[in-house]
Design a protein around this nucleic acid. Structure first.
Lengths: 340, 340
DNA sequence: CTGTTAGCGCCTTCAG
DNA sequence: CTGAAGGCGCTAACAG
């Protein structure tokens, strides 16, 4: 039913090896024969099975991508850009969504990518154990996040620098009560982004001689809804903030929503800064810190491809991408400069 | 280096067949042996190669997903939800982004999924030729879109009904000059969504005795930026609209942005309705038509799985999902009721 | 330049 | 209940 290489070989009156060589453009086939074979192959609608080819050649021409979300903007952008680079290079992409604890365990228990992919790019930051399991795969590994991991080509941004841009901006405007929306204390330790951003926030407050107030820090779960709940909590503080730094644009948008519900004007009553430069940040006029998202996916994919092409070659351990402050409409001076 | 089934067989003192049977839970292995094998396998870190297994069994336990975008909200949601259902069922997901004309041609020329997937779900609406090529794969096929296609299990919504909800709302508010942002005349004919939505818009205008004015229809390319440009064009019309129906929330958000730039207030000066109920629609208070996006992906995946489990079984040709009108803050009565 | 011979790692008969 | 043999579709040596 499905046409195989021997079918083509017979039809073209040659051996299977010749068909294989001809179709893959390898040397050692006369032009005449090669052309005849191509014609026969396409008339029969033949395409080599990548699985079988991979089995024989030990190259699957497939990448694995591990992600905690597909539907969230940041991850979607990265998968999209990585896929473009890979398909351009002739690679397929096997996608694993390990967002739930359950799916994650299942993945690391089975490691279904074993012998199935030539390289793996992960958007979830592996625990030490998980990282070890991945290293055991014996293939090039890539990671996108704010800090390097041994054994992985890592692409990321300087979360601290980005955060400093955001918080410094609020300080320069005269804010002294600056709230933080990030992850709560339950955040997994291996996912460094929120930790780094929080530390930079604390650092800047300290530098400005402002005392940290836990009452104006809340967990926004890195989602719109979580950001909304977090902002609501901040507003209920005994002394609410005049400005808020949200660790992601999605949480910032949730915060904006909460403010609207409370009939508070932005930035007159409260200023808000996000992080990411989400596609819709411009639509809502959100002041934020931009990071090149798609570029990170493309770069990571390209580095892994390079590693596959040139196994002995040197690979950077960490590639940092630039961050950039983007001033829009959600930040302004505090209303009561003398309030604090 | 990488441990194979024979390694496990040797270590456990049995044959490879027995290992295969034991690990896959097939009958015909004594409990004692089965347990010994599992222990040995996991101590060796053995996982069967899905590629090799697929070659032998002719079942790849893999789904192919064809999509025009990954990073856009609608598609990301669908891929996400489909992936959940599939990984739950033990299937892997091979993702193909055929957004560019080039990638699309490459995909249909090679059909790299051939012999590589057990079923295929497509989020791009294939042309007749492409559909034929896919049918030639001889595997269950799924499609997510607003209309059925022969040979595909199709999941979708009633685009006309959804559009009617949106436009009727504007009419009820008293609007008579209602603009349309969708795709231009260059839209590919096989992608029915914009066509259907446009037809429903025209129908309703006709029913209301309003003459269609091409000057207040513009192409928004189904993106935020495109929507912004389209709205700008509508505002430049000799008689600008008092309300706009955007065929997607992303375009509607672009329209909102354009209105803000023009210092027009929403809904006082112009009303805007979108379509989709994007995650951030609530944040910007966008009135829209909601469709169950994730549910469509999950349903399509489930239907294909069912088809794989029960090849002879009956399959619905088309599964329609409900749409629902969501009233928020971007719509109101026209300012000058007597203006038109 | 081309064909033959061996597998790749696994599953599926078919014997026992 | 278990093992041996054969083959899935292809590529990689090795001969000519």
């Amino acid at each position: 039913m499905t046409v195989s290489i021997t079918d083509v070989a017979k039809a073209a009156g040659v051996s299977a090896s010749t068909v294989s060589r001809a179709l893959r453009g390898r040397p050692g086939v006369s032009d005449a024969v090669r052309e005849r074979i191509s014609r026969v192959a396409s008339s029969l609608g033949y395409t080599a099975s990548r699985n079988a080819a991979g089995l024989a050649s030990r190259r699957t021409l497939t990448f694995g991508v591990l992600t905690p979300y597909v539907g969230r903007w940041f991850f979607g952008q990265i998968i999209d850009s990585a896929e473009r680079v890979l398909s351009e290079a002739g690679y397929d992409l096997l996608l694993y969504n390990v967002g739930s604890e359950e799916a994650r365990e299942r993945f690391f228990a089975d490691l279904p990518v074993r012998k199935r992919v030539d390289a793996l790019l992960t958007l979830v930051v592996p625990t030490e154990e998980e990282a070890a399991a991945l290293r055991g795969l014996g293939i090039p590994l890539g990671l996108i996040v704010g800090g390097a991991r041994p054994g992985f080509v890592t692409v990321g941004i300087d979360d601290r620098a980005g955060t400093r841009l955001a918080v410094r901006h609020l300080l320069n405007l005269g804010h002294r009560r600056i709230g933080l929306i990030g992850t709560g204390p339950t955040a997994p330790m291996h996912w460094t982004t929120p930790i780094e951003r929080r530390l930079a926030y604390l650092e800047l407050l300290a530098e400005a001689g402002i005392e940290y107030d836990p009452e104006i820090e809340a967990d926004g779960e890195f989602t719109v809804e979580g950001g909304e709940r977090a902002m609501t909590r901040l507003l209920a503080a005994s002394r609410p903030p005049t400005a808020v730094f949200a660790q992601s644009d999605e949480m910032a948008m949730g915060a904006l929503r909460a403010l609207r519900r409370h009939r508070l004007r932005v930035p007159r009553d409260v200023s808000v800064v996000g992080f990411d430069d989400h596609q819709l940040a411009e639509v809502v006029g959100l002041t934020t810190v931009a990071q090149p998202v798609a570029a990170q996916g493309a770069e990571a994919a390209a580095l892994l491809l390079e590693q596959l092409r040139n196994p002995g070659g040197e690979v950077p351990e960490y590639v940092g991408m630039p961050v950039r402050f983007v001033l829009r409409d959600t930040t302004g001076p505090p209303r009561d400069l003398d309030r604090d």
